[in-house]
Design a protein around this nucleic acid. Sequence first.
RNA 1: CCCCCUUGAGAUG
Length: 385
Amino acid sequence: LVSWNALLASYAQNGHMEQAKRTFERMPEHNLVSLNSMLVAYAQNGHFGRAKSFFDSVSASYEANTVLWNSMLAALARDGKLAEAKDMFDEIPQWNLVSWNSMLAAFAQHGDMARAKDLFDRMPEKNVVSVNAMLTGYTQNGLLENAKEMFAKLPEVNLVQCNALLASYAQAGSVENAKQVFDELPCKDLVSWNSLLAAYAVKSHLNSAKDLFDRMPQHDMVSSTTMIAAYSMAAQLEEAECLFYSGLPHRDEISWTCILGAYARNGRLTQAERIFTRQPEQNRISCGAMLAAYSLNGHSHQARSTFDYMRALYTPDDISFVSILISCSSGARVYDGRCYFTSMESDYGIRAKKQHYCCMVDLLGRGGYLEHAYELLANMPFAAD
RNA sequence: CCCCCUUGAGAUG
């Protein structure tokens, strides 16, 4: 049984879902380790829907086990379902360090640093993972002072922390800084390579990206998907398609969403729609990509129905509100726009950002409500730019 | 033999 489990785990780690599934089905017996490996295989390969149904079917017939709960909690957080993750955390019969860390990371990744800090302070035990989760939460939410303070107290810096720094430069579009951190790393792993690749992709440095992609020691799903995204950003659809259809070891939920986004971003609505209805698992990001594509191309009716569809299945986020407001603006639907704008705060607790004010001012201005537009500008909680 | 931190997918007139 132990060797079967080891085999299963190694397929799971390398993203060979079919093999993992076949191994799981062929095993003479299952224990908690096998169940958990299968659950993690689904979650880490982007099959969030399948992970959830697997967990539900398993937890109906097995004793509650902290490792299974922890894996499912992490999967929910990775899929952006913070509220569900929190509910699940509260249901866990017995917590351990990993449960605390998972919940902490979920808060931090969703920008809720207040709750993250609160949890961090109350955790009965902590380790380097807990500290790293806090650190990256700070850097990704622009709380650099807090991050520095915490960094200063570290006895030594490890590769995960360096990679996190590299990634935060990449996300901020500071290619130079990212490159410098990368070059100075004494040893690099795949995450380091992938992060630098992402830095190039974000800034549409297609040649550097391509060059790096060809030079890196290995590729995994992350590398290839990043490269597809780089082609998409640079409007090289044929290259993106080529890599997606014939350069991937397999296709997961994220790579499907990536190619959908490539079509959507480049105005190929029909192809995007086809992927959307055909992809094995839709998710809130593929929905968001469709919504954005409709908005930006002036299909306000489809935008609205996609928004409703999305709202029924997932919790809309700030980005989906930007899209729907844009579509109201181009369809001159001032009243609808105001409804969405107020509903965003009151029904979903999403605080309006600059982008939302920008959309609203645009909407009001175009609709001839200039004085309302000025009033909104004067009362928003930001300096106008 | 399995679970937690760092890298890939959506918008911005």
